[in-house]
């Protein structure tokens, strides 16, 4: 049944694409798909819905620190046209402006640091609250009931905790796994719930933002290298079994390798989640490009299907991020890191 629906929707979309190709070359094509990149990127406001010409948005705080003016707080709605809700240099406010690409700028060009509560920061807070609430209510269950069979939040969190502890940490790190289990569980839950909540229509693409994945990958990088033992560093700087001359090549490669691992972590999560959002929005955009009901139905079926895949991707990416973090940590604390190469 599922296969039939999928095949049918693919067929319909391909068929209608050919027949409606004349409408494809629309002048306003840019406008019809611009919402995709707008959604995928971070923003100073949370645009919820547009009803006719009314934009329903959640204005968010803009926080700026500059050496000469100190810490300043604004609202994102201070920087936009009140009719169209468009940002632009012409709608500047107290020396600052947000340009049409959603960049904060300063009119006099002086330096500043931005700490704005953007859409992704709000999303981050929501994810933090959800994860913390689930984990703390699960923990309170054990505090109240002691070591009995789990119920409620504990029944949701416990299998994840056991999975991360036994199948990720114990497998990949080895005998010293216990120290790293709390970090790995937190990482898994954060990424997983970030991915899942990001799939809710109207939510932000938080785990698909490079700043978020950068921080997570950096934390793994720091934990890995702080815990690196003698074998690990020996492997980097005096790779065993390599002739001395070759070390001139191998050592730089190994040092680059230290950084490519977390870099891969950062890019993998960012790309997987962002790509998923783009694909879903792309199918939605088809309906606006062709302005056809049939395309709308077909693309909606596709969007449903891709959404199901994204649920899977959300879990897989959380697993992969945690697993690779564990493996990098494992390679740093293993007693004979060179033995398994």
């Amino acid at each position: 049944m599922k296969r039939k629906i999928l095949a049918l929707s693919l067929l319909i979309s391909a068929f209608l694409l050919v027949f409606n190709s004349s409408t494809f070359a629309s002048e306003q094509e840019e406008d019809k798909t611009s919402f995709i990149m707008h959604h995928v990127k971070d923003s100073h406001e949370w645009h919820l819905v547009t009803l006719g010409h009314t934009h329903v948005t959640l204005p968010l705080p803009v926080i700026v620190y500059s050496g000469d003016r100190g810490l300043e707080f604004f609202k994102s709605s201070d920087f936009q046209n009140h009719e169209t809700h468009a940002f632009g240099e012409e709608y500047g406010h107290e020396g600052y402006f947000i340009d049409e690409h959603d960049h904060l700028g300063r009119a006099d060009g002086a330096g500043f640091v931005e700490f704005s509560i953007t859409k992704n920061v709000v999303m981050l807070f929501i994810v933090l609250i959800v994860v913390a609430w689930l984990a703390l209510s699960a923990a309170s269950f054990y505090k109240k009931n002691g070591a009995i069979a789990p119920r409620g939040a504990a029944a949701i969190i416990e299998p994840i905790v056991i999975f991360v502890r036994d199948d990720i940490a114990k497998e990949s790190i080895g005998p010293q796994y216990k120290r790293f289990v709390p970090y790995l569980i937190t990482l898994f839950l954060f990424v997983w719930f970030g991915n899942l909540l990001g799939l809710i229509p109207g939510a932000a693409n938080m785990t698909g933002n490079i700043a978020v994945t950068l921080v997570l990958a950096t934390l793994t990088f720091i934990i890995t290298n702080v815990n690196g033992n003698k074998d690990y560093w020996k492997h980097v700087f005096m790779t065993p079994g390599v002739p001395p001359l070759m070390l001139l090549i191998i050592v730089p490669v190994e040092i680059i390798g230290l950084f490519t691992k977390p870099f891969a972590l950062m890019v993998r999560l960012f790309v997987a989640i962002t790509a998923g959002h783009i694909v879903i929005l792309g199918f939605i955009a088809l309906a606006f490009i062709f302005e056809s009901y049939t395309i709308g139905i077909a693309s909606t079926l596709m969007v449903t299907f891709i959404n199901l895949i994204e649920l899977l991707v959300a879990t897989i990416q959380a697993y992969v991020f945690t697993l690779f973090s564990a493996m990098y940590i494992g390679s740093a604390v293993a007693e004979h890191a060179h033995a398994d190469h």
């Binding site: 926080i63 640091v113 700490f115 921080v215």
Partner: peptide, 8 residues
Amino acid sequence: GTGLIFWQ
């Protein structure tokens, strides 16, 4: 973005 890095 610096803001998101900080908050994250």
